[in-house]
Amino acid sequence: MGSMASAKIVALPMIEKHSDPEPAAVAAKSSAAEISAVETVANASAPVTSSELPVPASEPVPTVSLTKVLRSLLAQITRERLITAALACISIGALFLFWYLGTKYRFEFYIRFKNVPTPYEVYQQLTQVGLSNKYLFNIAISVRRILLGFFIAMAIGVPLGLAIGKYQRVRDLFMPVIEILRPIPAIAWVPMSIMLWPNNEASIVYITFIGAFFPILLNTIHGVHSLDGVLVRAARCLGASEFRLFLNVILPGSLPHIFTGLAVGMGVAWVSLIAAEMISGQFGVGYFTWEAYSLVDYPAIVLGMITIGFLGLACSGIIRMVGVLLMPWLAFAPGGRR
């Protein structure tokens, strides 16, 4: 929750900056003004090139005062936002209330709350183990595995996806093998992965990679395909070489879909990681949770689950935040936030 909220706040100053009246109205006003402006220069009969045109002076750099920043932050606390925040609290509060009531009255009707620890017991567990080295070490191990698997998947998936999306021959070569491997769930890779890789750590990273790879790859391909062909033609007319075309048009044009792929890939990576840790692991949050079950340490099970939830949320929140920072234009795209 925290990461999501901060992502929104980061995005907002950029939106506020561009708040203009209706573009159409502005267009009408400016076109009327510019006709006279253009007509005055039209009488100059000597042909000119772009480099000879009079250069307007740069706009002065606006100064920022602290009170202005504070006021703009305060202005963001609107009625809409308060309602959003209230509903978020209700949503999470309801979950805890259900859990609390279920465990308090030992609810038993098909589902059994008999052995489920109460929120307070889990809280106690957190304060006991929360700062213990073992717990933090498990988290660190899981995060490292996720980052390794995810970044390798991104480093391979995005360039490969761009190439497959752009070139028919690359597509013909790679797609058959991808279509066969793709339906195999990452968890089904566990036995093979243990055989394949020299150590346990590498095999878990590999499973995490498999989970993240296909969503990233397929969304990147889709991003290239959904790019408007006229943009590619325009870039070629403006002298873009093949490499420049990739860097300056195809990559940024596919970026919204790539980020969808990264967000989905991150989710699947966590699913795959936890499963792999539970089955074959030493260390990691998944292992921590499974070990708690083996040791009949019920509060630790719930603590493990909540930890996984928060880690997953933080990871997708970071991806969303990076996406907003890298793609500020999306705020104005059709169907965007404005």
Partner: peptide
């Protein structure tokens, strides 16, 4: 670029994104 945008009467929109503009612009 600034000189050309001035010629097109759109210098004040130099930092806008295309999606913020009308079709004629």
């Amino acid at each position: 670029a600034r000189a050309l945008l001035d010629l097109a009467g759109l210098l004040s929109f130099e930092n806008h994104y295309p999606d913020q503009l009308s079709g004629g612009m």
